[in-house]
Design a protein around this nucleic acid. Structure first.
Length: 553
DNA sequence: AAACCAATCAACCGCTAGCAC
DNA sequence: CGTGCTAGCGGTTGATTGGTT
């Protein structure tokens, strides 16, 4: 207890306590006219409650006051017992394992604190909730993504697995509904590849992911700016496509993978009307609040009718799954994270398969969201510009695009800026462990660098050891977008990624061709040089298991 | 030393699902 | 089926603490 004032009152609540302003006015009183106390509990009250529960057991909380004389409402008693008095409660800070588990669980469940608490023995929903809210604040300030990238990827992979297990790219209605309940209302989009063998119908469930990522990683203007800019680039590129005719006269541009209507559909798939209006001058004309009918920003708890105000609330929901999908995590998250033999490699690399084979823009969207986490929070002040290479604001991005109207011009940029104001190099390092010396994903120095101010960093809770480093090197780091595009892991994925232009196309679609062009500068798409991206450090991937997801009920 | 600010935590509030009647 | 009660959940508030200026 942190209320010494009350600790002094070591006995039953005094009269002036019960008459204090903390008195429960509305529940106040009860049938017997006893005024119920509110506010901090005293140790004396605790003892009474403990005694009561010993005698009568848990439950029937409203009877506590009746039987024990405790001037507390049943609700308050239940809460006090559940959060502080019941046995086997674990006190103290969360361990690294617990924190990691919370992150995983939250990625899957969202703000289902009670359900999360069920997976953390000795912890209460309140504790977890407080921890998470603190974490949100911290990471917002630091401009860090809420989830480690690999969590997003695993979630995405699990999602894909769920879809694929249905034998169709079209998600079953139930799942679809569940996802939609937490996503923007984004129409399914069918993309047609020019290549007959890869013609596909892509029904992106990604919106759930992307919307979540958006919700947590991008603010509306940034995202809209980016999408508008990207789509504008695509359109512009298409318009000038004759400049790059292919051998058969077709044009190998990312955009030409899509039919014209797909263009606007693609934009619509992001819940925006701006695809049709590709004029960049309208870039700020919309906000997330204009997503009519969308209720996803509210964590899926609000009806579609509650829209405007609530959608503006800062809500950082999850890559939510129906809990029935826990099984899908068994084969994806748990082994990849916790076991030395990485089943990510053993299993079907769903993520890459879909991302590449289908040249899915939505994959790029996920990748995009993963690698372009928006520096959230109010501390995007000008000083940030000086902190590191994150030197362009979202608004500047569009400008940078305009300035970089040609590939040649782009080549002059030594540091290509992501649509969200990150350099292409920094954006990766922002998402991934950076230093070979063991700096974690939550490296405080990074935190400071990104935020431009000193903030409390996330705990360096993932101790790095040489053994872990070795183990990490033996596997693909899925936290790293580049890892998805490189390594012999590709070869295991049925050679699907042999044509890296496909990947580039997908990325190009999202990033815009100029950024993708920069992307192409890297061997195999993105640098495979471990040191360049800090692949040596992989703390998140080496978290020991608290429990396997397969053990979860 | 004082003022200020952010972080943390305990507790409350409103809402809802489940259940019994 | 409707009503009332209870337990539980998630969001929010407010007190306290600790760090910084």
């Amino acid at each position: 207890m942190r209320h010494p004032k009350n600790e002094i009152e070591d006995n039953l609540p005094s009269q002036d306590q019960t008459l204090s302003p903390l008195l429960d006015e509305d529940s106040g009183g009860n049938a017997s006219g006893i005024v119920l106390k509110k506010g901090p509990w005293t140790s004396a009250e605790d003892e009474i409650l403990i005694e009561y529960v010993k005698k009568h057991g848990e439950g029937n909380w409203n009877a506590v006051q009746k039987h024990s004389g405790l001037s507390r409402c049943g609700k308050s008693c239940r809460l006090r017992w559940a959060n502080h008095l019941r046995p086997n409660l674990k006190k103290g800070a969360f361990t690294a394992e617990e924190e990691h588990l919370i992150i995983e669980l939250h990625a899957k469940m969202g703000n289902k604190w009670a359900r999360m608490a069920a997976h953390l023995p000795g912890r209460t929903d309140n504790e977890i909730k407080n921890y998470w809210n603190t974490r949100i604040k911290r990471r917002q300030r630091a401009g860090l993504p809420l989830y480690p990238p690999e969590v997003c990827l695993r979630t995405w992979q699990a999602l894909q697995q769920t879809q694929d297990s249905g034998g169709s790219t079209i998600v079953d209605n139930d799942h679809h509904d569940l996802l939609r309940a937490n996503s923007y209302d984004i129409p399914d989009v069918t993309f047609h590849s020019l290549k007959p063998q890869s013609a596909l119908s892509y029904m992106p469930e990604l919106p759930d992911i992307s919307s979540c990522m958006l919700k947590r990683g991008l603010d509306s203007s940034q995202y809209c700016n980016f999408m508008q800019s990207a789509l504008h680039r695509q359109k512009r590129f298409r318009d000038s496509a004759s400049l790059f005719p292919g051998p058969d006269g077709s044009v190998k541009t990312p955009f030409h993978q899509f039919e014209d209507n797909s263009y606007s559909q693609a934009a619509q798939s992001f819940g925006t009307p701006f695809a049709v209006e590709s004029n960049p001058t309208t870039k700020n004309a919309m906000s997330f609040g204009s997503f009519e009918g969308s209720h996803s920003l509210t964590n899926g708890n609000s009806s579609a009718s509650q829209h405007s105000k609530e959608t503006e609330k800062l809500e950082l929901p999850s890559l939510q799954y129906p809990e029935t999908d826990l099984t899908s995590w068994d084969t994806t998250i748990q082994p990849a994270m916790f076991e030395s033999v990485d089943p990510f490699i053993q299993s079907t690399p769903t993520f890459v398969l879909q991302a590449t084979d289908r040249q899915s823009p939505c994959h790029s969207g996920l990748l995009e969201a993963l690698v372009y986490p928006k520096p959230m929070g109010p501390k995007n002040h000008p000083s940030d510009k000086n902190s590191n290479s994150c030197s362009v604001t979202p608004g500047d991005v569009t400008d940078s695009y305009n300035m970089a109207a040609s590939k040649t011009e782009i080549d002059d940029y030594t540091e290509v800026i992501s649509p969200f104001g990150h350099s292409t190099s920094s954006l990766f390092s922002e998402c991934t462990p950076i230093s070979a010396t063991g700096s974690s994903y939550e490296d405080p120095t990074l935190t400071e660098a990104f935020s431009g101010s000193h903030v409390k960093s996330e705990p360096l809770d993932h101790a790095w050891t040489p053994d872990r480093e070795k183990a990490a090197k033996s596997r693909v780091n899925f936290a790293r977008p580049d890892a998805l595009l490189t390594s012999d892991w590709h070869d295991r994925s049925s050679g699907i990624v042999e044509d890296t232009t496909n990947v580039t196309d997908a990325i190009s679609l999202l990033l815009g061709d100029d950024l993708a062009a920069d992307y192409e500068h890297f061997p195999n798409g993105i640098s495979t040089t471990h040191s360049a991206w800090g692949l040596d450090s992989c703390s998140w991937n080496n978290m020991p298991a608290v429990c396997h997801m397969s053990d979860l009920p």
